[in-house]
């Protein structure tokens, strides 16, 4: 039995679908997800394309609502959690203002979370240093490479020191230095007791960086446990095949 106020997040029988054919029909994405994550844990979320990883993160970020079921972040609704700056989010398809400088956009992100004045400037500059973008701070985001944008995305997710960080495919486009930056941020998060949910379909990303792994298949949590046990045998691909055979 979980204690929703003490858990970082809990999802109970969460279902979500999207309308199609002008709303006459719906495509189910999540079909009853149950998931509880303790504070300070780093959970990897695996699953093939279309399994509902990004949808799950959007529900946790509070920008979408479930059709049924309960989603709680630190015992509150995700919207309430977002309003109190508990959540940092790097979504898979996030676009940033191309005409703004890296420093300006990061300060904008900080101001949205209520940071002001010296606290904002200091925090933004420290994070730019931390993700290796300090020397490019005046460069516009439109002229930045994909890897730099991803590092900027990590910085904006951490700008307000949230309790829960949601990362959707954070390694996509990262260079070697970016991988080191991500690993460092995850280590610091673990030390600070920050909960991290990291969605990826690359097994090695998750195995190396997460305490636990949950695998989403057909809109449900099909497996959960330590990465070594979940990935034992043939790895994620084998897990997907076994699940598909069982479903038939």
């Amino acid at each position: 039995m979980s204690d929703s106020a003490r858990d970082a997040l809990s999802l109970v029988a969460v279902a979500k679908s999207y309308p199609r054919l002008l709303g006459f029909s719906r495509t189910p994405v999540l079909r009853g997800v149950d998931l509880v994550v303790a504070r300070g844990a780093t959970l990897g979320l695996a699953g093939p394309n279309g399994s509902g990883k990004s949808t799950l993160l959007r529900l946790l970020a509070g920008v979408e609502r479930p059709d049924s079921g309960t989603v709680l972040v630190s015992g509150r609704t995700p919207q309430a959690a977002a309003r109190t700056d508990l959540v940092g989010w790097l979504s898979d398809d996030t676009a940033f203002p191309r005409e703004m400088s890296i420093r300006g956009a990061l300060r904008l992100a900080g101001s949205l979370h209520g940071l002001r004045g010296r606290a904002l400037v200091g925090r933004a500059d420290a994070l730019l240093e931390r993700v290796g973008l300090a020397s490019h701070a005046r460069q516009t985001l439109g002229r930045s490479s994909r890897g730099m944008l991803r590092r900027f995305g990590l910085a904006q997710a951490w700008i307000h020191a949230p309790e829960l960080v949601l990362l959707d495919e954070p390694t996509a486009g990262l260079d070697a230095e970016g991988f080191v930056v991500l690993a460092g941020l995850l280590d610091e998060a673990r030390a600070a007791g920050t909960t991290v949910i990291l969605a990826s379909h690359v097994a090695s990303d998750l195995a190396e960086r997460c305490d636990e792994l949950a695998v989403l298949l057909d809109g449900r949590v099909a497996a959960r446990g330590a990465p070594s046990s979940v990935l034992a045998g043939g790895g994620l691909l084998d897990l997907y095949r076994r699940h598909a055979r069982a479903a038939r």
Binding site: V63, D85, G88, W89, L90, D93, A95, S111, H113
Partner: peptide, 19 residues
């Protein structure tokens, strides 16, 4: 507003409507 840009402005205390 370009698509995807609102993702990082909406999960904040500023909120969607204020943003």
């Amino acid at each position: 507003r370009s698509r995807g840009e609102v993702a990082w402005t909406s999960t904040s205390r500023a909120g969607i409507a204020r943003g």
